[in-house]
């Protein structure tokens, strides 16, 4: 018995110590759950075609991915961070503090953010102002900020059906939330004239006014979803008349369950997003740790494969899934080929 135990523990220790030297040959990716489907499609095709092992793609959100990315350089850190928003100054600094000084930013295309309810629910034609009035924590009324009194969509806009406001929006760890706040809530705040009213109230402090605009109500009309879009979908299915915020690709995979509302009169589609008519879209990125190129086999090849015309182009599998391909893809390809890092003058 004792010898068995002893040999088992020796075995375990041997296994542990043997690993320290083993080199990693698989590209490690983490980050945005919006980019995850695209990254997994590319990873799969990359493994099939290029003779490298299929990269490992972790999910968890843009911020979580970038945090992992900035943990340092070396085999036990990830090589690529997927993000549905641009990297922040603060994150670049954290990266630099941990030795991640050379970061390549790669824009892979655009993604639309759509507002959808169940197919049986009434149709809506939104403007950003409607969303601001529906979801802001406080609205300016007669020269003072009051808690948002709107309980029904018909109170927001008389044209709308009398349905209680209930929206499932991405939680703060998602990059999508930032885009939602800036392109919908803040835009709506300005569009509806509330911005001026707030500036009038607080005496012209623009930063504070913006913050006041983007303050989302917490009285139950708006609910943060920290999980993925599937969770949002389940949530709106359980609640009559509820709206969910989704990525365009998710909607395109579920057109038999949900329908989208127009925004400022434009219906979301890859065409309207590519042309810029549909206002709520954002670029998707991935960030490559340049210091790992040459150390991890297949890293640069993966980046080049990702942005190649056959993958990220308008006829590629990513566009088929719902990515709005980048009109400036050629420039991105050149950047990746030249390994241009951020802050190196391009």
């Amino acid at each position: 018995m004792k010898t068995v135990k002893l040999s088992a523990s020796v075995l375990a220790i041997a296994a542990v110590s043997a690993t320290a030297a083993a080199a990693r040959d698989t590209v490690q990716i983490a980050g945005s759950s919006t980019v995850l489907p695209y990254a997994s499609i590319v990873a799969e095709a990359f493994g099939e075609n290029m003779g490298f092992p299929t990269p490992v793609v972790q999910s968890g959100g843009s911020s979580a991915g970038l945090k992992q990315f900035c943990e340092g350089v070396g085999e036990n850190t990830i090589d690529i961070a997927n993000a549905s928003r641009a990297i922040r100054e603060k994150e670049i600094k954290t990266c630099a503090d941990n030795g991640v000084t050379e970061i390549m930013e790669v824009r892979i295309g655009y993604d639309g953010i759509v507002f959808a309810n169940e197919i049986a629910d009434p149709e809506f034609a939104f403007t950003p102002a409607d969303w601001y009035k529906a979801l802001a924590a406080e609205l300016p009324v007669d020269g003072a900020m009051v808690a948002n009194p709107n309980a029904s969509w018909s109170e927001v806009n008389p044209d709308f059906a009398d349905i209680a406001i209930k929206a499932f929006i991405p939680g703060t760890k998602h990059g999508t939330r930032e885009v939602f706040e800036e392109k919908v809530i803040l835009a709506g705040c300005e569009e509806s004239g509330a911005m001026e009213a707030i500036l009038g109230i607080n005496g012209g402090d623009e930063d504070a006014a913006e913050e006041a605009c983007m303050n989302i109500r917490t009285d139950g009309a708006s609910i943060d979803i920290d999980g993925d879009y599937t969770e949002t979908l389940t949530s709106i299915q359980g609640e009559e008349g509820a709206f969910g915020v989704f990525g365009l690709a998710f909607y395109e995979n579920n057109t038999n369950i949900i329908k989208v509302a127009t925004m400022s009169g434009v219906a979301p589609s890859t065409e309207t997003i590519a042309s810029g008519e549909y206002p709520v879209s954002r670029p998707l990125f991935f960030y490559v740790k340049k210091q790992h190129i040459g150390e991890i086999p297949g890293l640069k090849e993966y980046a080049e494969f990702f942005v190649s015309d056959m993958v990220a182009g308008p006829d590629g599998p990513l566009a088929a899934y719902g990515l709005v391909s980048d009109p400036e893809l050629a420039a991105t390809q050149q950047q990746v080929a030249d390994e241009v890092t951020m802050g190196s003058g391009s």
């Binding site: 296994a15 490690q28 995850l36 990873a43 490992v56 972790q58």
Partner: peptide, 20 residues
Amino acid sequence: LLLIGMVAFVREYPDSILDP
């Protein structure tokens, strides 16, 4: 397993306990 990178898209069969 979430924090140690095992909630992931992995397509390669692991040859050993060291592979993803």
